[in-house]
Design a protein around this nucleic acid. Structure first.
Lengths: 119, 119
DNA sequence: AAAGCATGTAAGAATTCTCTTACATAGATG
DNA sequence: CATCTATGTAAGAGAATTCTTACATGCTTT
């Protein structure tokens, strides 16, 4: 087995990190159904400065979770929810085949407990 | 609408943050199908010290993503994949009703573009 | 062109993360 | 009981995160 972490990951780091912040998740919700301008979004977070929101939007954009469309004076953000697929895939990987793997797991556990550990 | 971020979140911060690291995702994969001892897990990451892995396991445990069962000299870790449900729920929330909301989105966009922005 | 909006960027402070090495604790074993 | 083994914790260094306030840039409108 190679390094267990070096599989299909890479961008999932950025996506999961982007999701690990309430402000950014709130932003994603706000742009899920349609474009919204940056200032419009910033106004939805009264307890935070506008640049802070702008920086959160940058994190989301670098993670591929929002698109930007310049429009006149504004910049319209929209969710690109396909970017969430990589995290979803990981969760699915953790959930899928759970039953199918149980017998293998039982064997592994038995091997470990009797042959090596011996509770 | 209240603050867009203050919904059912809270613990999702910790879970998403736990997922935003390749080592921790690798650990989760290793304990998905059965218990494994801490040292066993640490050995799977040759480029990292054992305490570092131990600290990653603590992060996973605090996020509710692994359980710990002391067994003799060892501590056996196992994935608690239910903890992933909160992140999954967010992704689902971002994906669900996507079509149903498109007409509402179109109205919103039209209202914004003509009545306020006017490209 | 001048003035005004909408927005991003820079710089820096306070905090948090993630390692490393050294030490502490607790069960196992001779 | 003395010692090993498995493991967690402490302390601290270096990097990253996340704010804030100032400033830069670029449409837009008069």
């Amino acid at each position: 087995m190679l390094s267990p972490a070096a599989q299909g990951d890479e961008r999932i780091d950025a996506v999961a990190h982007a999701l690990a912040d309430g402000t950014r998740r709130g932003l994603l919700r706000l742009v899920r159904d349609g474009e919204r301008a940056a200032g419009d979004l910033a106004a939805a977070f009264p307890g935070m400065s506008r640049p802070a929101v702008s920086q959160h939007l940058r994190v989301l954009h670098e993670a591929g979770l929002v698109s930007i469309r310049p429009n006149g004076n504004h910049r319209l953000y929209r969710a690109r929810t396909e970017g969430l697929a990589e995290v979803w895939r990981f969760i699915d990987e953790m959930w899928a085949d759970r039953l199918a793997r149980l017998k293998q797991a039982a064997e592994q556990a038995a091997r470990r407990e009797s042959g090596h550990d011996g509770e």
